[in-house]
Write a protein that binds this DNA or RNA. Structure first.
Lengths: 200, 200
DNA sequence: CTAAAAATAGGTCAATTGTCCTAGAGTGAC
DNA sequence: GTCACTCTAGGACAATTGACCTATTTTTAG
């Protein structure tokens, strides 16, 4: 169906633009131009800017859910799955250098605007928190898995923030190694632990 | 002098508003209303919005320089000075819950806008990095002090980000304790590891 | 006191914003 | 073919934006 395609094109373009420029700095005209449609047509699919925002958030949520499900299938080792999460910092390094973390920056921006969809955006952060919590509790059911999850999530957010500010590849690699090492330390059975990385 | 007072009032108001709402979402009218002056008067003191931004960045820089100088005077122990830095997360918790870290959020926003003053804002982050580097090299001149500095800076940025998203006091306290503990571990001579102190 | 300078007020401007509206073009069912 | 429906285009709208301009008022200097 052509309509669903147009709608999806709008969401995809808005997703990119919200990431690259921020929600507040992206106008209807920007998105319409990016999809090469008229503003009139635009308003047929989305009546308000907040509607697009919500659609983008839903898309991001479902994209991340797919990604996490994939990791769940790919590896039976929770430590390896956590490592997949941490390695996003390296895989997406170029974009993070330019625009920061898509989840963190949107969360921040909407929180600052006290935007109605702020809680909605927090659900993405919550998705990661809950998924990481599950991984850590699989590693060690006695540990405070949620605290460990928040630790890794917060760690990666910090690395993304400084990566954007300083664009220092060595820093990112070093921190990723440290996180992986930390994960290995809280899960002695894991094979992630590599010699030489422990000490900073 | 009345003029310098008005100018300073504008800078102070802009500083607050840029922090609470972000630079892009704060208009001339917002600032003028906050200081109770006319827009015309406003343009007498600042010809463009970017001029105010630069003035605000300079103010933030000099405020932080003062703060760091104060800590330098207050304690002869580098580990204790680092602890002062980390404890900002708790001291300013209320504002961080609402608006995030003033330095991190501005850095992010300007980087995303590819704003001309982005590099200028990064100087504040660089100020902390360099100051922390000095503290760590005082602790152990053989260690990679800058890597340690970036580690603590990144850690605190991550905590601020998640604090804003989840507003979880326990999480913040836990992470702060962990950072202080980590600092104590890389500086065996420090007295920070004393039980109970970490929980301040 | 007076004249120059600094400071303030408020109007105006073009551009952009989000939103709404109507007029068509395309498409499928019957 | 006709009719209903989906989709598209583009104009119009009030509000807001950053910016400029010219009058006043206030302050300062001589």
């Amino acid at each position: 169906m052509k309509s669903s395609s147009t709608r999806q094109q709008i969401i995809d373009a808005a997703d990119e633009l919200f990431y690259a420029q921020g929600f507040g700095e992206t106008s209807f005209a920007d998105i319409a131009k990016s999809v090469s449609i008229s503003r009139g047509n635009f308003y047929y699919h989305f009546k308000t800017k907040d509607e697009i925002l919500d659609a983008v958030i839903e898309k991001r949520l479902s994209d991340r859910e797919d990604m996490l499900r994939n990791w769940d299938k790919m590896s039976g080792n929770p430590a390896e799955r956590i490592a997949c999460f941490v390695r996003i910092l390296i895989v997406n390094q170029t974009k993070i250098f330019a625009y920061g973390c898509p989840v963190g920056t949107l969360t921040m921006e909407l929180a600052k605007l006290e935007h109605a969809s702020s809680g909605n955006a927090n659900r993405i952060m919550g998705l990661f928190r809950d998924w990481l919590t599950r991984q850590f509790s699989e590693l060690d059911s006695d540990a405070d898995a949620e605290a460990q999850a928040l630790h890794v999530l917060s760690w990666s957010q910090g690395v993304a923030t400084l990566a954007q500010a300083f664009r220092d590849e060595d820093f990112v690699r070093r921190e990723v190694d440290q996180i992986l090492d930390w994960v290995g330390r809280v899960s002695p059975s894991s094979s992630l632990r590599q010699p030489g990385l422990a000490g900073i």
